[in-house]
Structure formats: structure tokens, C-alpha cells
Nucleic acid binder design. Structure first.
Lengths: 249, 249
DNA sequence: GCTTAACTGCTTACGTCGTACACAGGGTGT
DNA sequence: ACACCCTGTGTACGACGTAAGCAGTTAAGC
């Protein structure tokens, strides 16, 4: 149990050492992870099987187990590898910084919608995700917030982006699964329409009829602006619920 | 394909009609859904198999298929049934209303952490979720916002709560999977600690050493207050990016 | 009443998944 | 040369979702 957990930590934080003896490996941990990411991107999370990943590499399923302990660990490695593609938040003004961070994460989720669909076996981010978070903490570290507040501020942004991302991922998945695009689906709403009666769903039917669902505001842009406004109010307020303390390095 | 989608809609929106002939069913759709929810609550999303659900009902796996088309549809029904447990947002002042809505959803996710872990086959909420959303829309409908803005405001709150919920669900899952509680895990951090070096993770190590991670602010409470503050700024601002129009019924 | 059609739940079976295990061949150390 | 460790493969097992077909049970139509 505990050794399992430790092994999992080592897997993420310590690069695999190359062996001196034995035949040169055609595969490698990073090649496996890379291939798995490609499969998930192209065919969705349901198609992400050990056999499928191995197939794209021209190997058998079991060959993967020489480079990766198991599927759930492979998922952990995939997630952290994708985090590695994002840029660190540069130092600077806090709002611009948090916005940069949010956009990076959002872009990551859009490029790899499966990120939020798979439940990783981790309790803690890997090194790539960690350094990104660290940089985000840094950008709000000079504001006189307490350590707890720094964490809370960044976490709030993270939660919002996770929420939007999750919704988007589900949409992408439904689209792939059914082969019906978002628009096509809403057009073939015959079976559904009769249930949208003003007495059961007054606001829904009203908003529907007024076309508010057809040209919605950008969920990410709108929400992010509001979240940052709310954080600004907190940061700039004279008397915060908790003590101000200098926590920057 | 399309008939599949229509069948899925009917499944959620039209209550199953009781047949006149044949033996009285010991099972029923709602009993199956109920049992499945209990299994997911008690044993987690991984234990949610057709055989396990049937077992708790004293039946065989295949008997479930008389009452539910398949597993993914069962998941849809479970999700909507849980939404049915929450209370509708009462009419009233917008901020209190949105806060009530957020707390309801948050309580729902805490009671059923699996809700955000399973990818449902829907592209659209079921009737229970719909009526809850409708009530939430209603509470911001008298503020002179446009229809698009009403949707965006409520969606923003929803995304935030989804984000926090998702994080919590992953924690619960990791706890169950490993049998190690959050505290126990952080205490046995030996294998991890050596990687927290000030040069790689300056803020992390600082926050860690200052104990900011040990007594974090409540992620939900803190974030919700900020999000609502941000929405308040938007709602109360004189000149919003988009037109004000009366959209209430 | 009897027949018939509808409906229930069960048994069996198939294909797919993750992966344990044993193995054959290649390459480095001694 | 040997021993050792490494590589990828083949086979196999148990668990999953679920298709198909089979009794047994009940109400509707004659």
C-alpha cells in the first residue's frame, strides 16, 4: 500500500535511469506516454487501451509494461506530460499573471479534453503541474497576502477553469460518441421540445424562444473576467477576513 | 444513431409506463437506479458494475436490462435522480439565491462524489437538473440582464462548483483506492520531500514550511465569495459590455 | 375456460479489457 | 566463455458490458 504510493511518487518525480546491460530498448517510457497521448487526442478516452497504444507503436500490449507499471500510472504520466507543454506564468502584475495562467490551462484542456475525464490515481500533481502552480503562486506573492490566501486565490482560478474544461470535455466526448455535432443535435430536438413547457421550465422556454442559447456568451471569457474581478475586490479591500502577512520569499 | 439519442431523451423525460400484462416486476427502473446510487456512494465509481448492482438487489446482472437500456443510460438516470434530491432555488434577492443554488449543488457533490467522475452519455441535463437550473435562472431574471447574460451568470457559478467538486471527488477516490487518508499521506511524505527544493519550487517550499498547506482556507467558501463578488461587480456596473434588456417573464 | 401475447428474470456465451507469468533472444559485465 | 539482466512476445485468467435464447407468469381476447 504505502510502497505503492512511494513508487508512484518516484515514477513521476525521478526520471527512469537507463540500464547498462541488455538490448537497446526500441520503446521508452516517454515514447509510450507520447503514443498514449496521441491516441487519447485522436480517438478519445474510451479508445485509450493498452493494446491500442501498443498497436500504434507496432508492439504488443505487454511490451508497454516494461516501461510503465500499469495503466493508471500511465495516465498519471500522460497528465503530467501535458502539463509540461504549458508555459510558466511569467512574473508581473498579478491580474495579468493569473489571466495568463488561466489561459494556459484552458488551452491545455482544449487541446487534450481527456485530461479532465480520466481519474488519475494521484493525490498530488506531478512535477510539471507543480512548477506551473508554483509560478502561479509566485505571481500573487507580492501582494501582502497570507500563505493561505495565496493558495486560495490561485486555487479559485484553477477550480473555475477545471469546471469549464470539464463541461467542454463532456461535450467533445458526446460529439464523438454519437457522431452528432452540437448544432445538429439541437436542431433535431423534436423528441425533446414537447417537454419544454412554460409551466415546468418557465425561464428555459423563455430563454430558448428568445434565442439566448443560440448565441451564448463565451463561457470561459465571461467567467474568467468575473472571477478575476472578484479576486481583485478581495485583494484590494482594506480589511480582509484574515490577517495580512508578507509571505513572499 | 439519431433514434438512440431520441430514446435517451425519452428515457429521462418520460416516466416508464407500467405494463398491464406479465408478472409483477420485483425490480423497477427506480429501484435499479436507487441501488446503483447506493453502490456508488458506498463503494465508489469503480465498484459500480452491473453485476454488483444486481447483487445488492438479489438478482442477476441481466435482469437489470429489463428496466434500463444499458449502463451509460443507467448513469444518466442516476445523475438526474441525485439532482432530484436538491431543493429548488427560491425566488428572492439574486445573490442569496445564487449562493443557495451553489450550496445545494455543492452539498449534492459532497454526498455523491462520483457525480463528477462519470462521463454521462448525455449532451443535456435531465429534467431534474433542468428544473434546478431553471430556478437558478429565475433568481437573476429581474436584474435587467440580457438572456445571454442570465445564462452566463448562472453558468459561471456552476462551473466553479463543478471545479471544486471535481477536486474533492478525486481526493475521495484516492483515499478509498489507497486506503490512506489525506493526513496520513502528507505525513508519509519522505519519498516526496527531497523533490521540494527551493530552486525548483520556491513558492511551494515556502508555503509548505510556513504551514500554509496544513490549515488551508475552505476552498468552496473562499471561492464562492469571490465569484459572487465578481458577478456583483458585473451586475451592478453601469455600463456592461452587452445591452441591458428586460428578459423576465 | 382456454389461448395467446406480453412481460419477467435467468442461463449461457462472446468479445474486450487490464495484466500475471513464463519464455526466448540480445547485450554487457566478469 | 559464462552468467546475468534486459528486452519484447505469447498465452492465459478473471472481470467487465451485454446479445440471445429460454422458462415461467400474468392479463387480455375469444
Amino acid at each position: 500500500m504505502k510502497s505503492d504510493r512511494d513508487r508512484s511518487v518516484r515514477l513521476l518525480w525521478e526520471p527512469p535511469a537507463e540500464p547498462t546491460r541488455g538490448p537497446k530498448a526500441a520503446l521508452s517510457q516517454s515514447r509510450v506516454v507520447e503514443a498514449a497521448i496521441k491516441v487519447a487526442d485522436a480517438e478519445g478516452v474510451d479508445a485509450l487501451t493498452m493494446r491500442r497504444v501498443a498497436e500504434t507503436l507496432g508492439n504488443t500490449a505487454m511490451s508497454l509494461y516494461r516501461h510503465v507499471p500499469g495503466k493508471s500510472e500511465l495516465l498519471d504520466l500522460m497528465v503530467d506530460a501535458v502539463w509540461g507543454e504549458t508555459e510558466h506564468t511569467p512574473k508581473g502584475e498579478w491580474r495579468a499573471g493569473l489571466e495568463f495562467y488561466a489561459r494556459q490551462v484552458w488551452a491545455m484542456y482544449r487541446a487534450h479534453p481527456w485530461m479532465l475525464q480520466l481519474t488519475t490515481s494521484r493525490r498530488m500533481p506531478g512535477p510539471q503541474a507543480m512548477t506551473r502552480t508554483d509560478a502561479a503562486y509566485a505571481v500573487v506573492s507580492e501582494l501582502g497576502l497570507s500563505g493561505e490566501e495565496i493558495v486560495a486565490v490561485v486555487t479559485t482560478v484553477g477550480h473555475f477553469v477545471d469546471g469549464v474544461g470539464r463541461t467542454m470535455a463532456d461535450r467533445v466526448q458526446a460529439e464523438r460518441e454519437t457522431g452528432v455535432s452540437e448544432e445538429e443535435w439541437w436542431n433535431g430536438r423534436d423528441a425533446l421540445w414537447e417537454h419544454f413547457t412554460p409551466d415546468r421550465l418557465p425561464m428555459m422556454t423563455h430563454l430558448w424562444n428568445s434565442g439566448s442559447f443560440e448565441r451564448p456568451l463565451d463561457e470561459f471569457e465571461f467567467g474568467l473576467a468575473r472571477v478575476l474581478d472578484g479576486l481583485a475586490a478581495f485583494i484590494e479591500s482594506e480589511e480582509r477576513p484574515l490577517v495580512r502577512t508578507r509571505t513572499c520569499l
